[in-house]
Amino acid sequence: MKPVAFDYERPASLEDAIALLSGAGARVLAGGQSLGPMLNLRLAQPELLVDITYIPELKTAERQGDGLWLGACVTHAEIEDGAVPDVTNGALAFVAGGIAYRAVRNRGTVGGSLAHADPAADWVTCLSALGADAVIAGPSGERRVPVSEFLSGAFETALEVGEILRGVWIPTLSSAASWGYYKFCRKAGDFAEAIGAVLQDPERGIVRTVLGATNARPIVIDGAYGDESVRASIDSQGGDMDAYDRQVHFVTAKRAAMIAGVRVA
C-alpha cells in the first residue's frame, strides 16, 4: 500500500520547523524508520511532514559541560561507529549497534526513536539508566525532562503540540563506572520483549536498575540491586504483566546487573 497524499517541508532552522509544526496534522520526520512503515500502511495519515534531518544543529554531537550533547538527528549508525564522543564507557555504541538492522540504523535517529515512544525501543531504557535529559524546544522556549519521564504511555510523550525534541544531554560516567545492558528478543534486530539496563558509578554514588520494554515508560529503581526490590517494582509498576512477562523482565534485569558487575547475591 502507498501512503496518503501529504505535503513535505525541509526547514533549515529549528525556528522554521517549530513554526511549521503549529498547524494541525503536521508531524516531524526524523529518519522515518518507524514512521515510514506506518505511512505505507496508512496507519499514520499526516497532512504535512516536517523533515528536521537537514537542520545543522540537530546533527551535532559534542561534549557540553559535564556531559554529552546529542542532537536529535544523530543516527544510530553514527553512534555505533564511534563518530560521537564517548562519555559512557562504550554503553551508547553498544546499544546503538543492537538496534534493528544496519540499513535502519543508517537513517534512524536517536531523537526520532525517542519521540516515536515505542516502549520496546532501546534508547528510552538506555538513556533512562544513564540519567539523560530530553531537551525540548517549542514556541515558548526550551525545557528539559528526564528521559525516564519522557514517555507518558505507549507512543505518547511529554511533547506538546508545536514542540520538537531537540536532543538529549547525557551525563559523563566516571572512569570507574560500569554498565550492563541485556535485551531479550526472539530474533536479531527484532523489538525487545524485555530489556534490562544497570548502571553502577561508585564515584558519583549511583547504582540504578532500569527495566524496559514494559507497557509504557521504563521502571527505574535507584539504589543497590536486589532481587526482591526488582520483583516488587515489577509487581507494583509493571501494569498488567502476566507471570511470563514478569519473569523475563526480572531475568533481563538480573543479567544486566551481572554484566555490570553489580553484586546480585
Binding site: 512503515p37 506506518m38 496508512r42 520496546a120 505507549a154 520483549e193 514494559t214 507497557n215 501494569g239 512477562d245
Partner: peptide, 18 residues
C-alpha cells in the same frame, strides 16, 4: 489488516487499563 502489523507486548495492557 494493517493495524495488525504494529503491536507487540504489553502496550495493549497499558492502553486497556488507561
Amino acid at each position: 489488516g494493517a493495524l495488525g502489523q504494529f503491536a507487540r507486548g504489553g502496550i495493549v495492557n497499558d492502553l486497556a487499563s488507561r
